[in-house]
Write a protein that binds this DNA or RNA. Structure first.
Lengths: 219, 219
DNA sequence: CGGTAATCTAGAACAAGTTTCAGAACTGAA
DNA sequence: TTCAGTTCTGAAACTTGTTCTAGATTACCG
């Protein structure tokens, strides 16, 4: 939780491709993390308990995941991967791209509702992460972007405008989840807001012909 | 950082209107908090140091602010109030409501850029806050909403659609700030995304005649 | 003014994230 | 198989948020 590590330690994600036992350890840790998070949320994921319950020494846990936030962000990455493959199986049915994205995100939202504590742990970790976790957070962010772009079902590559719209949707997604998790917004309101954000996809669709757009604002 | 306090302690914000010395203590604490946050961000605000530097016992600090997150959210509330009065002096010039909001938020953004560490501490605390801080977070949220609605300069009361658009803008605002603070997005990108979100104000302006809108998505 | 309840102080104590270290276990190469 | 280097273990130590306690101060009321 200190601002920076001493000198960007090599860590695991670097070169050596992990032996089988190491891969197994990593899985066990992530599984334990998700299990503990599943009941109790962020606070219930205690590093000592994760280590013990994963059959791993505390020092080893920290070698695999340099902080609790790293661990939970990695857990989110893991869960997102599952979700992504699940979502791929039943692509959204609506014909409007924005509606498809909204549909997909609502499906993801319902999945999170089944494990609100897990969602709490992951999302809080994600938004609390500082610079030292940037690479991992970025991976999660890219995954989320991929899911949304998938749902849009574009023909060609997205325009910068569309990418901006997708980012706004992602921002709304994360932030709305937080308001829901902390009991400040209802499920219905999250739905409304996500759908509102998704309208931007229509707005940014062909709005590329004139030079206005983002530049229209004088600031 | 525990999930809940034992039984909703009466706390300060309740009935008694604080004596003069108490008010002074509170100010000193908030001032110290902002000062420490100003250099070092979230991690640099250490409760012992805040207490000592404010000339107050640790127990007293915790009586005024039941947790570090409470303290930082209160600090944010304080800063936002300043910002609000500052912004009021020079209302945005643009004629388009969305552009006015974007202009106002960019002004706020520039203010935050002058104290990135302070911004870090406040925003991180805000998004990390759990249910026990909901009332305080809600106050900050209402303040932000007020600032945005002010910038819009509506004639009558906002429609539900407009409120949703404002919430999406707020979500984007918070989340984009976080990506900037953690070095994953540039200032330019934050600007683009905020302006993109602000386009929703135009979208949600008169889009109230038909029952579609948010309900158009089948989900 | 005197008394009583609430508040404040100083400091210890506790909880959980993180670091450190000495030695055991494992890996890969000669 | 043996050796050198890495990884893992077990346990203590350290850091910082949070709680607790006993006594000093303060605020308020008669």
């Amino acid at each position: 939780m200190t601002t920076e590590s001493r000198a960007a330690r090599p860590a695991l994600p670097a070169s050596p491709p992990l032996t089988e036992r190491q891969e197994a350890r990593r899985r066990r840790i992530l599984h334990t993390s998700a299990r503990l998070a599943g009941r109790g949320g962020f606070d219930a994921v205690q590093m000592r308990e994760v280590a013990e319950s994963s059959g791993v020494a505390l020092g080893t846990l920290y070698r695999y995941f340099p902080s609790k936030v790293h661990l939970l962000v990695a857990t989110m990455q893991d869960q997102l991967q599952h979700l992504h493959t699940t979502l791929r199986k039943r692509p959204p049915s609506d014909e409007d791209p924005g509606a498809r994205v909204a549909q997909t995100l609502m499906r993801a939202f319902r999945a999170l509702q089944r494990e609100p504590h897990l969602a709490d742990a992951m999302v809080r970790a994600l938004t609390f992460a500082d610079r030292s976790v940037s690479p991992e957070v970025d991976t999660v962010s890219r995954l989320t972007t991929t899911i949304i772009l998938d749902a849009m079902g574009l023909d060609g590559p997205p325009t910068p405008e569309q990418l901006s719209a997708v980012r706004v949707i992602e921002h709304t997604w994360h932030s709305a989840l937080i308001t829901w998790l902390s009991g400040r917004a209802s499920i219905a309101q999250v739905k409304i807001d996500i759908e509102m954000a998704c309208r931007l996809i229509g707005v940014a669709a062909g709005a590329d012909g004139d030079g206005s757009g983002a530049g229209a604002v004088t600031g």
